[in-house]
């Protein structure tokens, strides 16, 4: 393991930033098994948890578990209601899923950075990254799904002709000379959405993970003073990170809702 003295900090970090891949680096089919596993486990966990609570939901006084789920649901529904003034039967659950799932995946960042790799190593797996949202593949997967939904709802709300008309005539005007500039601008606007969504979440989580690793470097620095500073730093960054993971999950949810609700607007 790279945290041992002979490897040094650089090797420690580069080791930790290595995904568990199905084939070697650079290959298109090198699937990040760790990201997929953790995100699937958390997704199933979230689904089971909320499904069980929803199934046992009563109209009477809720238990604490049900009340908690209701609080989360009400919070998300309130956010969606503020942004989107239409039928929330699809957008509401979508926002809830995005929020809780992203939050849970972000929360993996709070686990000790060596914990999951240490456990997987017992089973002979050398590399394991615990935070799926620090994987650009996963954040782009989510944001491209959002893009697909944006395009789908644009067609649904405006019709094929209406959406095409909007793409080619807004924002500059309907003169044929402006069709190409209009379309190019709209294309940039459309594509910037998934890029900003994915990069924001990835950047925050990746940087957070990296700072955890840098602080963890203090543990193997070889002095008790630095070791104490490491514990303090790791804790403080962890506390700060609680805020970051919540805010990033919230932003991802709100922007998803905003983008999809914008797809319903007519220009």
């Amino acid at each position: 393991m790279a945290s041992e003295p002979q490897g040094g900090l650089t090797e420690y970090i580069s080791h930790h930033l290595h995904f568990l891949q199905s084939t070697h680096d650079g290959d298109f089919w090198s699937v990040h098994i760790d990201s997929i596993t953790v995100s699937l486990v958390l997704g199933v966990l979230f689904s089971l948890w909320f499904w069980l609570k929803a199934r046992k939901a009563t109209a009477g006084v809720p238990g604490k578990g049900q009340a908690f789920v209701e609080l989360v649901l009400e919070f998300v529904d309130g956010q969606v209601k503020d942004v989107f003034h239409g039928d929330r039967r699809i957008l509401g659950p979508l926002a809830l899923t995005v929020f809780v799932w992203v939050f849970l995946m972000n929360a993996m960042d709070l686990l000790p950075v060596d914990l999951l790799p240490w456990i997987t190593q017992k089973f002979g797996v050398e590399h394991f990254r615990a935070v799926p949202t620090a994987d650009l593949s996963l954040t782009f997967a989510m944001s491209l799904t959002v893009l697909a939904l944006v395009i789908f709802y644009s067609f649904k709300a405006k019709g094929f002709g209406g959406y095409m008309h909007e793409l080619f005539t807004a924002p500059f005007g309907s003169s044929p000379f402006l069709w190409i500039p209009n379309f190019l601008l709209n294309l940039v606007e459309l594509l910037s959405k998934p890029v900003s969504l994915a990069m924001r979440l990835f950047g925050n989580m990746y940087a957070g993970e990296l700072v955890f690793m840098l602080i963890a470097g203090l543990f193997s620095a070889g002095s008790w003073a630095l070791y104490g500073m490491g514990i303090i730093g790791y804790t403080v960054w962890g506390l700060f990170h609680i805020l970051i993971i919540s805010i990033q999950a919230f932003i991802f949810m709100v922007l998803t809702v905003v983008y999809i609700s914008m797809a319903h607007d007519h220009h």
Binding site: M1, S3, E4, L110, P112, L115, W118, G230, I231, Y234
Partner: peptide, 22 residues
């Protein structure tokens, strides 16, 4: 990899984090 000082330090921090949350 065996349990080393790094993991123990991280676990200590994690414990403090859990305590703070609780």
């Amino acid at each position: 990899m065996d349990i080393n000082a790094t993991l123990i330090g991280e676990m200590l921090s994690f414990a403090i984090l859990i305590w703070f949350s609780v």
